[in-house]
Nucleic acid binder design. Structure first.
Lengths: 177, 177
DNA sequence: GGATTTATGTCAGTCATATTGACATATTTT
DNA sequence: AAAATATGTCAATATGACTGACATAAATCC
């Protein structure tokens, strides 16, 4: 059962290609690595020009997608400490991409929003990624997006799935199997 | 066309859920982020205990999957500099997880292999990830693995796809659209 | 066979992003 | 009033990346 002794064979499996069983899964894991690597390469290049990094991108993205996000929610999403978030968020605020507003019901909260400058950057960063994913799903066949989303969601920690489903707004299109 | 003005509507799209168009793609991008985040969380925890990081994992993985890998190939796969690889690879060699052997045809090459200790770690790190992906694909429906693989492969830079296809051993199962 | 290129390694310095721990402040809840 | 909560900040440290420079051995070119 080690991942070296079942290559190329297929052992009667009617599935695609020459891989079967665990090797098939391992190949998918590598594809996930490469896909993610290239997925972040476009914004990475843009960010470098303005002296930002991936951390800035993630923050810009989630604030842009979820205006009024609380700091504690953002910490939970990114799974980093407040000290790590602090420095990057400070830069984004100081350079005019993000602003904060005290919560109305709870004035301890600092709700996060993008400025117009922030929204503009958000759009520029997202554009190549949206194009990349859209093209990939079209090329993957009809309803690939549903299958892709289900696979990704089921790959997250079970305890988090409901929260992620709500956050992303994803609803299953039925048609499972 | 900005990603704020088309939520929840659906606009007659027969597709699943309440999202349509660009918002749908953006939701998928977030799912990709969360899936990847959780996908690496299991090995991350194990690595921490022995004083290794993600960089060590990636190296262990690719050497384990492709024994005899050349240093230059590994650099290309990971897209890092030789200086970055150097320190981490040195640790793996010094602590007995990896060994090198000069190439027979070209004795400048240092072919990379896992020791038994390295293979053992490789297996332990991979196990939870294999389980996670296998479960996710089963839950995503029949043939989800083909669709998933096609989507991921098409998400990589086009110039690299053939190389990645060969490296992972993935072959398309036909049945596209 | 000497010059050049290639594959790899290494030293030194820097940067981005993460960590832990401690402490501060404002506000809400008990 | 006391305690808990949401957030911010200071300081020290670790990891993993970078650039640039230089070194060595082996292969290849002319």
């Amino acid at each position: 059962m080690s991942e070296s002794a079942r290559n190329v064979v297929g052992s009667g499996d009617p599935k695609a290609g020459s891989l079967s069983g665990e090797d098939r899964i391992v190949a998918l894991m590598e594809l996930l690595f490469f896909a993610y690597r290239d997925f972040i390469s476009d914004p990475d290049a843009m960010l470098e020009e303005i002296g930002f990094g991936r951390a800035h991108h993630r923050i810009i993205h989630f604030i842009g997608r979820h205006p009024g996000l609380r700091v504690s929610e953002l910490l939970g999403i990114l799974r980093i400490t407040k000290q790590s978030l602090g420095r990057v968020l400070r830069e984004l605020i100081d350079r005019g991409y993000v602003y904060q507003k005290a919560g109305e019901r709870d004035r301890r909260q600092r709700l996060l929003f993008l400025t117009e400058k922030g929204r503009s950057l958000h759009r520029r960063l997202a554009a190549p990624q949206i194009a990349r994913v859209a093209q990939a799903l079209e090329a993957a066949g009809p309803d690939a997006d549903d299958t892709f989303a289900r696979a990704l969601l089921n790959m997250t920690d079970a305890a988090e799935r409901e929260r992620i489903r709500r956050l992303t707004g994803w609803e299953d299109g039925g048609g499972n199997g």
